[in-house]
Nucleic acid binder design. Sequence first.
DNA 1: ACATTTTTTTAGGCAAGCCTAAAAAAATTT
DNA 2: AAATTTTTTTAGGCTTGCCTAAAAAAATGT
Lengths: 219, 219
Amino acid sequence: MYSYTEENYLKTIYKLSEQGNQSINTNSIAEVLQTKAASVTDMIKKLADKKLLNYEKYKGVALTEKGRKVAVDTVRKHRLWECFLYDKLKFGWDEVHEIAEQLEHINSELLTDKLEEFLDFPTHDPHGDPIPTKNGVIKKSNFILLCDAKPNQILVMSGVADHTAVFLQHLNKISVVLGTEIQITEKNDYDGSIAVKLSGIKSMYFSKDVAKNILVKVK
Amino acid sequence: MYSYTEENYLKTIYKLSEQGNQSINTNSIAEVLQTKAASVTDMIKKLADKKLLNYEKYKGVALTEKGRKVAVDTVRKHRLWECFLYDKLKFGWDEVHEIAEQLEHINSELLTDKLEEFLDFPTHDPHGDPIPTKNGVIKKSNFILLCDAKPNQILVMSGVADHTAVFLQHLNKISVVLGTEIQITEKNDYDGSIAVKLSGIKSMYFSKDVAKNILVKVK
DNA sequence: ACATTTTTTTAGGCAAGCCTAAAAAAATTT
DNA sequence: AAATTTTTTTAGGCTTGCCTAAAAAAATGT
Ligand SMILES: [Mn+2]
Ligand SMILES: [Mn+2]
Ligand SMILES: [Mn+2]
Ligand SMILES: [Mn+2]
Protein backbone atom coordinates (compact mmCIF):
# COMPACT_ATOMS: atom_id res chain seq x y z
CA MET A 1 0.00 0.00 0.00
CA TYR A 2 2.54 2.60 1.12
CA SER A 3 6.26 2.46 0.57
CA TYR A 4 8.84 1.83 3.24
CA THR A 5 9.88 5.47 2.94
CA GLU A 6 6.36 6.86 3.15
CA GLU A 7 5.68 4.82 6.28
CA ASN A 8 8.86 6.12 7.88
CA TYR A 9 7.93 9.72 7.17
CA LEU A 10 4.43 9.24 8.56
CA LYS A 11 5.77 7.49 11.65
CA THR A 12 8.28 10.28 12.25
CA ILE A 13 5.68 13.00 11.89
CA TYR A 14 3.35 11.08 14.19
CA LYS A 15 6.03 10.74 16.87
CA LEU A 16 6.99 14.40 16.64
CA SER A 17 3.36 15.42 17.06
CA GLU A 18 3.03 13.11 20.08
CA GLN A 19 5.90 15.02 21.64
CA GLY A 20 3.64 18.04 21.95
CA ASN A 21 4.52 19.88 18.77
CA GLN A 22 1.29 20.98 17.11
CA SER A 23 2.61 21.59 13.63
CA ILE A 24 5.73 19.77 12.53
CA ASN A 25 8.44 21.64 10.69
CA THR A 26 10.65 20.51 7.86
CA ASN A 27 13.95 20.64 9.70
CA SER A 28 12.88 18.46 12.61
CA ILE A 29 11.66 15.76 10.24
CA ALA A 30 14.93 15.96 8.33
CA GLU A 31 16.90 15.61 11.53
CA VAL A 32 15.06 12.50 12.71
CA LEU A 33 15.22 10.83 9.31
CA GLN A 34 18.86 11.80 8.76
CA THR A 35 18.08 13.45 5.47
CA LYS A 36 17.98 16.98 4.03
CA ALA A 37 15.23 19.57 4.35
CA ALA A 38 14.86 19.68 0.57
CA SER A 39 14.12 15.95 0.49
CA VAL A 40 11.52 16.41 3.21
CA THR A 41 9.78 19.12 1.21
CA ASP A 42 9.67 16.77 -1.78
CA MET A 43 8.12 13.98 0.24
CA ILE A 44 5.57 16.01 2.21
CA LYS A 45 4.20 17.33 -1.07
CA LYS A 46 3.63 13.76 -2.21
CA LEU A 47 2.08 12.76 1.11
CA ALA A 48 -0.19 15.80 0.98
CA ASP A 49 -1.29 14.80 -2.55
CA LYS A 50 -2.25 11.42 -1.11
CA LYS A 51 -4.26 13.14 1.66
CA LEU A 52 -2.06 11.63 4.35
CA LEU A 53 -1.21 15.03 5.80
CA ASN A 54 -2.16 18.68 5.52
CA TYR A 55 0.54 20.95 4.26
CA GLU A 56 0.74 24.67 3.77
CA LYS A 57 3.95 26.14 2.44
CA TYR A 58 6.19 27.50 5.18
CA LYS A 59 3.61 26.47 7.81
CA GLY A 60 4.64 22.89 8.58
CA VAL A 61 2.51 19.74 8.39
CA ALA A 62 -0.07 17.83 10.43
CA LEU A 63 -1.26 14.28 9.77
CA THR A 64 -4.78 13.68 8.57
CA GLU A 65 -6.81 10.91 10.19
CA LYS A 66 -5.82 8.70 7.25
CA GLY A 67 -2.14 9.48 7.79
CA ARG A 68 -2.39 8.96 11.52
CA LYS A 69 -3.90 5.52 10.94
CA VAL A 70 -0.99 4.45 8.76
CA ALA A 71 1.53 5.81 11.27
CA VAL A 72 -0.11 4.14 14.27
CA ASP A 73 -0.36 0.86 12.42
CA THR A 74 3.35 1.02 11.67
CA VAL A 75 4.04 1.69 15.36
CA ARG A 76 1.77 -1.26 16.22
CA LYS A 77 3.72 -3.60 13.97
CA HIS A 78 7.04 -2.25 15.23
CA ARG A 79 6.17 -2.90 18.86
CA LEU A 80 4.61 -6.31 18.25
CA TRP A 81 7.75 -7.41 16.42
CA GLU A 82 9.86 -6.05 19.30
CA CYS A 83 7.84 -8.26 21.66
CA PHE A 84 8.43 -11.24 19.40
CA LEU A 85 12.17 -10.63 19.24
CA TYR A 86 12.42 -10.08 22.98
CA ASP A 87 10.00 -12.67 24.34
CA LYS A 88 10.41 -15.47 21.82
CA LEU A 89 13.83 -15.06 20.27
CA LYS A 90 15.50 -13.81 23.45
CA PHE A 91 17.06 -10.70 22.01
CA GLY A 92 18.09 -8.03 24.49
CA TRP A 93 15.92 -4.93 24.79
CA ASP A 94 18.85 -2.96 23.37
CA GLU A 95 18.88 -5.11 20.20
CA VAL A 96 15.25 -5.28 19.14
CA HIS A 97 14.63 -1.79 17.79
CA GLU A 98 16.91 -1.93 14.78
CA ILE A 99 15.45 -5.21 13.49
CA ALA A 100 11.89 -4.03 14.18
CA GLU A 101 12.62 -1.01 11.98
CA GLN A 102 12.76 -3.49 9.11
CA LEU A 103 9.96 -5.82 10.22
CA GLU A 104 7.46 -3.00 10.77
CA HIS A 105 7.14 -2.60 7.00
CA ILE A 106 6.00 -6.16 6.31
CA ASN A 107 2.59 -5.80 4.78
CA SER A 108 0.01 -8.37 5.88
CA GLU A 109 -2.87 -7.57 8.17
CA LEU A 110 -3.43 -11.26 8.85
CA LEU A 111 0.22 -11.66 9.85
CA THR A 112 0.01 -8.78 12.31
CA ASP A 113 -3.14 -10.21 13.87
CA LYS A 114 -1.76 -13.73 14.13
CA LEU A 115 1.48 -12.41 15.57
CA GLU A 116 -0.46 -10.48 18.19
CA GLU A 117 -2.38 -13.61 19.14
CA PHE A 118 0.79 -15.73 19.22
CA LEU A 119 2.30 -13.21 21.64
CA ASP A 120 -0.86 -13.42 23.76
CA PHE A 121 -2.03 -9.86 23.12
CA PRO A 122 0.77 -7.90 24.76
CA THR A 123 -0.12 -4.39 25.93
CA HIS A 124 3.41 -3.00 26.08
CA ASP A 125 6.62 -3.54 24.18
CA PRO A 126 9.99 -4.44 25.81
CA HIS A 127 10.64 -0.75 26.49
CA GLY A 128 7.31 -0.22 28.24
CA ASP A 129 5.70 1.57 25.30
CA PRO A 130 2.02 0.82 24.71
CA ILE A 131 0.96 -1.26 21.71
CA PRO A 132 -1.82 0.32 19.63
CA THR A 133 -4.88 -1.82 19.00
CA LYS A 134 -5.95 -2.98 15.55
CA ASN A 135 -8.37 -0.01 15.39
CA GLY A 136 -5.60 2.46 16.09
CA VAL A 137 -6.37 3.13 19.74
CA ILE A 138 -3.26 3.75 21.79
CA LYS A 139 -3.49 3.95 25.54
CA LYS A 140 -1.60 6.90 26.95
CA SER A 141 0.66 5.66 29.75
CA ASN A 142 0.54 7.70 32.94
CA PHE A 143 4.13 6.99 33.86
CA ILE A 144 6.22 9.72 35.47
CA LEU A 145 9.92 10.42 35.27
CA LEU A 146 11.89 8.93 38.11
CA CYS A 147 13.51 12.35 38.70
CA ASP A 148 10.03 13.82 39.33
CA ALA A 149 8.86 11.08 41.71
CA LYS A 150 8.47 11.60 45.44
CA PRO A 151 10.88 9.88 47.85
CA ASN A 152 9.99 6.80 49.91
CA GLN A 153 7.14 5.59 47.69
CA ILE A 154 7.60 2.20 46.11
CA LEU A 155 7.93 2.81 42.39
CA VAL A 156 7.90 0.27 39.60
CA MET A 157 10.22 0.71 36.63
CA SER A 158 7.81 0.89 33.68
CA GLY A 159 9.53 2.48 30.71
CA VAL A 160 12.32 4.59 29.29
CA ALA A 161 12.44 8.11 27.94
CA ASP A 162 15.75 7.43 26.18
CA HIS A 163 15.51 4.48 23.80
CA THR A 164 19.14 4.38 22.68
CA ALA A 165 21.05 1.11 22.92
CA VAL A 166 23.75 2.68 25.12
CA PHE A 167 21.20 3.78 27.70
CA LEU A 168 19.44 0.43 27.69
CA GLN A 169 22.78 -1.35 28.09
CA HIS A 170 23.60 0.95 30.99
CA LEU A 171 20.34 -0.06 32.65
CA ASN A 172 21.31 -3.71 32.18
CA LYS A 173 24.61 -2.96 33.89
CA ILE A 174 22.94 -1.35 36.91
CA SER A 175 20.29 -4.11 37.01
CA VAL A 176 17.32 -1.92 36.23
CA VAL A 177 14.75 -3.66 34.07
CA LEU A 178 11.00 -3.32 33.55
CA GLY A 179 9.33 -4.31 36.79
CA THR A 180 12.25 -3.49 39.08
CA GLU A 181 11.06 -1.84 42.29
CA ILE A 182 12.72 1.47 43.02
CA GLN A 183 12.47 3.56 46.17
CA ILE A 184 13.99 7.01 46.24
CA THR A 185 15.78 7.44 49.57
CA GLU A 186 17.31 10.85 48.91
CA LYS A 187 17.17 13.62 46.33
CA ASN A 188 20.10 15.97 45.77
CA ASP A 189 19.00 19.35 44.49
CA TYR A 190 22.57 20.32 43.69
CA ASP A 191 23.18 17.92 40.77
CA GLY A 192 19.80 16.24 40.44
CA SER A 193 21.22 12.90 41.47
CA ILE A 194 19.21 10.55 43.65
CA ALA A 195 19.90 7.76 46.10
CA VAL A 196 17.67 4.74 45.54
CA LYS A 197 17.00 1.32 46.91
CA LEU A 198 16.38 -1.38 44.28
CA SER A 199 13.98 -4.26 45.05
CA GLY A 200 14.01 -3.10 48.66
CA ILE A 201 17.61 -4.14 49.18
CA LYS A 202 20.32 -2.80 46.89
CA SER A 203 21.34 0.83 47.56
CA MET A 204 22.62 2.85 44.59
CA TYR A 205 23.10 6.37 43.29
CA PHE A 206 21.56 7.46 39.99
CA SER A 207 22.81 10.54 38.20
CA LYS A 208 20.31 13.06 36.90
CA ASP A 209 20.95 11.75 33.37
CA VAL A 210 19.80 8.32 34.43
CA ALA A 211 16.95 9.48 36.66
CA LYS A 212 15.40 11.68 34.00
CA ASN A 213 15.24 8.84 31.47
CA ILE A 214 13.56 6.21 33.61
CA LEU A 215 9.77 6.08 33.66
CA VAL A 216 8.03 4.72 36.76
CA LYS A 217 4.60 4.29 38.20
CA VAL A 218 3.66 4.26 41.87
CA LYS A 219 3.05 0.72 43.04
CA MET B 1 23.94 -5.34 1.81
CA TYR B 2 21.97 -6.16 -1.33
CA SER B 3 18.66 -4.67 -2.33
CA TYR B 4 15.34 -6.47 -2.28
CA THR B 5 15.43 -6.48 -6.08
CA GLU B 6 18.97 -7.78 -6.37
CA GLU B 7 18.17 -10.63 -3.97
CA ASN B 8 15.12 -11.55 -6.03
CA TYR B 9 17.11 -11.67 -9.24
CA LEU B 10 19.80 -13.83 -7.65
CA LYS B 11 17.23 -16.17 -6.14
CA THR B 12 15.45 -16.54 -9.47
CA ILE B 13 18.67 -17.27 -11.34
CA TYR B 14 19.65 -19.77 -8.64
CA LYS B 15 16.33 -21.60 -8.90
CA LEU B 16 16.48 -21.71 -12.68
CA SER B 17 19.95 -23.19 -12.56
CA GLU B 18 18.79 -25.80 -10.02
CA GLN B 19 16.19 -26.85 -12.58
CA GLY B 20 18.99 -28.18 -14.74
CA ASN B 21 19.57 -25.21 -17.02
CA GLN B 22 23.30 -24.62 -17.24
CA SER B 23 23.24 -21.06 -18.47
CA ILE B 24 20.21 -18.92 -17.76
CA ASN B 25 18.72 -16.79 -20.47
CA THR B 26 17.19 -13.35 -20.25
CA ASN B 27 13.65 -14.28 -21.20
CA SER B 28 13.25 -17.00 -18.60
CA ILE B 29 14.34 -14.62 -15.84
CA ALA B 30 11.92 -11.99 -17.13
CA GLU B 31 9.12 -14.52 -17.13
CA VAL B 32 9.65 -15.62 -13.53
CA LEU B 33 10.05 -12.07 -12.26
CA GLN B 34 7.10 -10.80 -14.28
CA THR B 35 9.18 -8.09 -15.89
CA LYS B 36 10.59 -7.29 -19.34
CA ALA B 37 13.70 -8.69 -20.97
CA ALA B 38 15.13 -5.19 -21.27
CA SER B 39 14.89 -4.71 -17.50
CA VAL B 40 16.63 -8.04 -16.97
CA THR B 41 19.53 -6.99 -19.19
CA ASP B 42 19.87 -3.77 -17.15
CA MET B 43 20.01 -5.66 -13.89
CA ILE B 44 22.30 -8.50 -14.92
CA LYS B 45 24.87 -5.94 -16.05
CA LYS B 46 24.81 -4.44 -12.57
CA LEU B 47 25.01 -7.85 -10.89
CA ALA B 48 27.94 -8.77 -13.14
CA ASP B 49 29.71 -5.53 -12.14
CA LYS B 50 29.30 -6.63 -8.52
CA LYS B 51 30.80 -10.06 -9.35
CA LEU B 52 27.60 -11.82 -8.36
CA LEU B 53 27.31 -13.52 -11.72
CA ASN B 54 29.20 -14.07 -14.96
CA TYR B 55 27.66 -12.53 -18.00
CA GLU B 56 28.57 -12.59 -21.66
CA LYS B 57 26.38 -10.72 -24.10
CA TYR B 58 23.87 -12.99 -25.81
CA LYS B 59 25.24 -15.99 -23.89
CA GLY B 60 23.15 -15.91 -20.72
CA VAL B 61 24.34 -15.79 -17.11
CA ALA B 62 25.66 -18.09 -14.38
CA LEU B 63 26.01 -17.22 -10.70
CA THR B 64 29.45 -16.86 -9.17
CA GLU B 65 30.13 -18.51 -5.82
CA LYS B 66 29.48 -15.11 -4.23
CA GLY B 67 26.14 -14.80 -6.00
CA ARG B 68 25.16 -18.35 -5.14
CA LYS B 69 25.82 -17.65 -1.48
CA VAL B 70 23.48 -14.64 -1.48
CA ALA B 71 20.79 -16.62 -3.33
CA VAL B 72 20.99 -19.64 -1.02
CA ASP B 73 20.91 -17.42 2.04
CA THR B 74 17.76 -15.79 0.73
CA VAL B 75 16.22 -19.23 0.18
CA ARG B 76 17.29 -20.18 3.72
CA LYS B 77 15.55 -17.16 5.20
CA HIS B 78 12.47 -17.72 3.04
CA ARG B 79 12.04 -21.31 4.19
CA LEU B 80 12.76 -20.59 7.85
CA TRP B 81 10.11 -17.87 7.84
CA GLU B 82 7.69 -20.27 6.15
CA CYS B 83 8.28 -22.70 9.03
CA PHE B 84 7.62 -19.91 11.51
CA LEU B 85 4.39 -18.90 9.82
CA TYR B 86 3.21 -22.49 9.51
CA ASP B 87 4.36 -24.01 12.81
CA LYS B 88 3.99 -21.05 15.15
CA LEU B 89 1.40 -18.74 13.64
CA LYS B 90 -0.73 -21.55 12.19
CA PHE B 91 -0.94 -20.25 8.67
CA GLY B 92 -1.92 -22.78 6.00
CA TRP B 93 0.81 -24.10 3.70
CA ASP B 94 -0.97 -22.30 0.87
CA GLU B 95 -0.62 -18.93 2.65
CA VAL B 96 2.98 -18.84 3.82
CA HIS B 97 4.85 -18.26 0.56
CA GLU B 98 3.60 -14.77 -0.19
CA ILE B 99 4.46 -13.41 3.25
CA ALA B 100 7.84 -15.18 3.23
CA GLU B 101 8.60 -13.37 -0.04
CA GLN B 102 8.68 -10.21 2.07
CA LEU B 103 10.32 -11.62 5.20
CA GLU B 104 13.19 -13.25 3.29
CA HIS B 105 14.70 -9.80 2.71
CA ILE B 106 15.03 -8.88 6.39
CA ASN B 107 18.71 -8.35 6.91
CA SER B 108 20.09 -9.66 10.21
CA GLU B 109 22.27 -12.73 10.48
CA LEU B 110 21.62 -12.93 14.21
CA LEU B 111 17.88 -12.87 13.59
CA THR B 112 18.10 -15.74 11.10
CA ASP B 113 20.17 -17.81 13.51
CA LYS B 114 17.90 -17.16 16.47
CA LEU B 115 14.83 -17.89 14.38
CA GLU B 116 16.35 -21.19 13.30
CA GLU B 117 17.03 -22.10 16.93
CA PHE B 118 13.52 -21.02 18.02
CA LEU B 119 12.09 -23.34 15.36
CA ASP B 120 14.33 -26.14 16.64
CA PHE B 121 16.53 -26.39 13.56
CA PRO B 122 13.98 -27.54 10.99
CA THR B 123 15.38 -29.43 8.01
CA HIS B 124 12.44 -28.88 5.66
CA ASP B 125 9.87 -26.14 5.09
CA PRO B 126 6.09 -26.70 5.07
CA HIS B 127 6.25 -27.75 1.41
CA GLY B 128 8.94 -30.37 2.04
CA ASP B 129 11.76 -28.26 0.58
CA PRO B 130 15.14 -28.54 2.33
CA ILE B 131 16.43 -25.61 4.39
CA PRO B 132 20.01 -24.62 3.53
CA THR B 133 22.46 -24.46 6.43
CA LYS B 134 24.15 -21.26 7.57
CA ASN B 135 27.19 -22.22 5.45
CA GLY B 136 25.09 -22.55 2.33
CA VAL B 137 24.90 -26.33 2.20
CA ILE B 138 21.60 -27.58 0.87
CA LYS B 139 20.76 -31.25 1.04
CA LYS B 140 19.39 -32.60 -2.20
CA SER B 141 16.15 -34.46 -1.49
CA ASN B 142 15.84 -37.87 -3.17
CA PHE B 143 12.10 -37.69 -3.47
CA ILE B 144 10.41 -39.11 -6.55
CA LEU B 145 7.26 -38.07 -8.35
CA LEU B 146 4.22 -40.04 -7.30
CA CYS B 147 3.45 -40.71 -10.98
CA ASP B 148 6.86 -42.44 -11.29
CA ALA B 149 6.53 -44.60 -8.17
CA LYS B 150 5.91 -48.33 -8.26
CA PRO B 151 2.56 -49.76 -7.16
CA ASN B 152 1.96 -51.45 -3.80
CA GLN B 153 4.91 -49.89 -1.97
CA ILE B 154 4.05 -47.71 1.01
CA LEU B 155 5.00 -44.16 0.05
CA VAL B 156 5.18 -41.11 2.24
CA MET B 157 4.03 -37.75 0.91
CA SER B 158 7.17 -35.60 1.24
CA GLY B 159 6.88 -32.56 -1.00
CA VAL B 160 5.28 -30.83 -3.95
CA ALA B 161 6.48 -30.05 -7.45
CA ASP B 162 3.78 -27.40 -7.91
CA HIS B 163 3.92 -24.75 -5.20
CA THR B 164 0.89 -22.72 -6.26
CA ALA B 165 -1.79 -21.94 -3.69
CA VAL B 166 -4.50 -23.58 -5.82
CA PHE B 167 -2.63 -26.88 -5.93
CA LEU B 168 -1.90 -26.79 -2.20
CA GLN B 169 -5.55 -26.04 -1.48
CA HIS B 170 -6.55 -28.95 -3.68
CA LEU B 171 -4.30 -31.22 -1.64
CA ASN B 172 -6.00 -29.95 1.51
CA LYS B 173 -9.34 -30.84 -0.03
CA ILE B 174 -8.27 -34.40 -0.84
CA SER B 175 -6.58 -34.76 2.57
CA VAL B 176 -3.05 -35.13 1.31
CA VAL B 177 -0.50 -33.44 3.56
CA LEU B 178 3.18 -33.98 4.30
CA GLY B 179 3.50 -37.36 5.99
CA THR B 180 0.36 -38.91 4.51
CA GLU B 181 0.94 -42.54 3.53
CA ILE B 182 0.07 -43.33 -0.06
CA GLN B 183 -0.08 -46.72 -1.72
CA ILE B 184 -0.61 -46.96 -5.46
CA THR B 185 -3.09 -49.71 -6.15
CA GLU B 186 -3.43 -49.26 -9.89
CA LYS B 187 -1.82 -47.27 -12.69
CA ASN B 188 -3.72 -46.34 -15.85
CA ASP B 189 -1.46 -45.95 -18.84
CA TYR B 190 -4.24 -44.40 -20.89
CA ASP B 191 -4.58 -41.07 -19.00
CA GLY B 192 -1.81 -41.36 -16.42
CA SER B 193 -4.29 -41.42 -13.58
CA ILE B 194 -3.71 -43.68 -10.58
CA ALA B 195 -5.77 -45.38 -7.95
CA VAL B 196 -4.36 -44.97 -4.45
CA LYS B 197 -5.03 -45.90 -0.87
CA LEU B 198 -4.41 -43.13 1.68
CA SER B 199 -3.18 -44.03 5.18
CA GLY B 200 -3.96 -47.65 4.34
CA ILE B 201 -7.70 -47.05 4.30
CA LYS B 202 -9.15 -44.37 2.05
CA SER B 203 -9.33 -45.32 -1.66
CA MET B 204 -9.12 -42.47 -4.18
CA TYR B 205 -8.28 -41.67 -7.77
CA PHE B 206 -5.60 -39.09 -8.63
CA SER B 207 -5.42 -37.52 -12.04
CA LYS B 208 -2.07 -37.34 -13.81
CA ASP B 209 -1.98 -33.59 -13.03
CA VAL B 210 -2.13 -34.37 -9.33
CA ALA B 211 0.15 -37.42 -9.43
CA LYS B 212 2.92 -35.62 -11.26
CA ASN B 213 3.07 -32.81 -8.69
CA ILE B 214 3.30 -34.88 -5.53
CA LEU B 215 6.74 -35.89 -4.28
CA VAL B 216 7.06 -39.07 -2.25
CA LYS B 217 9.69 -41.28 -0.72
CA VAL B 218 9.46 -45.00 -0.12
CA LYS B 219 8.77 -45.73 3.53
C1' DA C 1 12.16 49.94 10.40
C1' DC C 2 15.95 47.67 8.46
C1' DA C 3 19.60 44.23 8.38
C1' DT C 4 20.95 39.71 9.33
C1' DT C 5 20.23 34.98 10.20
C1' DT C 6 17.56 30.88 9.93
C1' DT C 7 14.22 28.08 7.73
C1' DT C 8 11.96 26.50 3.83
C1' DT C 9 11.24 25.96 -0.92
C1' DT C 10 12.65 25.67 -5.79
C1' DA C 11 15.66 24.28 -9.49
C1' DG C 12 18.29 21.01 -11.50
C1' DG C 13 20.46 16.66 -11.30
C1' DC C 14 21.68 11.64 -9.93
C1' DA C 15 20.94 6.38 -9.08
C1' DA C 16 17.84 2.45 -8.97
C1' DG C 17 14.58 -0.01 -11.28
C1' DC C 18 11.27 -0.11 -14.49
C1' DC C 19 9.14 0.68 -19.31
C1' DT C 20 8.51 0.82 -24.87
C1' DA C 21 10.40 0.91 -29.37
C1' DA C 22 14.10 0.02 -32.33
C1' DA C 23 18.39 -2.25 -33.56
C1' DA C 24 21.37 -6.16 -33.53
C1' DA C 25 22.50 -10.87 -33.00
C1' DA C 26 21.29 -15.65 -32.91
C1' DA C 27 18.39 -19.38 -34.09
C1' DT C 28 15.33 -21.49 -37.18
C1' DT C 29 13.06 -22.37 -41.52
C1' DT C 30 12.94 -22.83 -46.36
C1' DA D 1 22.73 -20.02 -48.30
C1' DA D 2 19.18 -16.81 -47.74
C1' DA D 3 15.07 -15.39 -45.53
C1' DT D 4 12.42 -15.26 -41.52
C1' DT D 5 11.55 -15.49 -36.72
C1' DT D 6 12.99 -15.23 -32.04
C1' DT D 7 15.93 -13.52 -28.54
C1' DT D 8 18.67 -10.10 -26.67
C1' DT D 9 20.53 -5.66 -26.33
C1' DT D 10 20.49 -0.62 -26.85
C1' DA D 11 18.38 3.89 -26.73
C1' DG D 12 15.68 6.94 -24.55
C1' DG D 13 12.45 7.98 -21.03
C1' DC D 14 9.64 7.53 -16.61
C1' DT D 15 9.05 7.47 -11.23
C1' DT D 16 10.80 7.40 -6.57
C1' DG D 17 13.72 9.20 -3.39
C1' DC D 18 17.70 11.42 -2.69
C1' DC D 19 21.26 15.33 -3.23
C1' DT D 20 23.49 20.45 -3.66
C1' DA D 21 23.07 25.21 -4.65
C1' DA D 22 20.32 29.14 -5.06
C1' DA D 23 16.17 31.77 -4.16
C1' DA D 24 12.46 33.11 -1.24
C1' DA D 25 10.16 33.62 3.01
C1' DA D 26 10.07 34.00 7.91
C1' DA D 27 12.15 34.96 12.19
C1' DT D 28 15.30 37.52 14.89
C1' DG D 29 18.35 41.35 16.28
C1' DT D 30 19.44 46.20 16.52
MN1 LIG E 1 11.67 0.50 18.74
MN1 LIG F 1 10.07 -0.09 21.72
MN1 LIG G 1 7.90 -20.30 -0.66
MN1 LIG H 1 8.35 -23.46 0.60
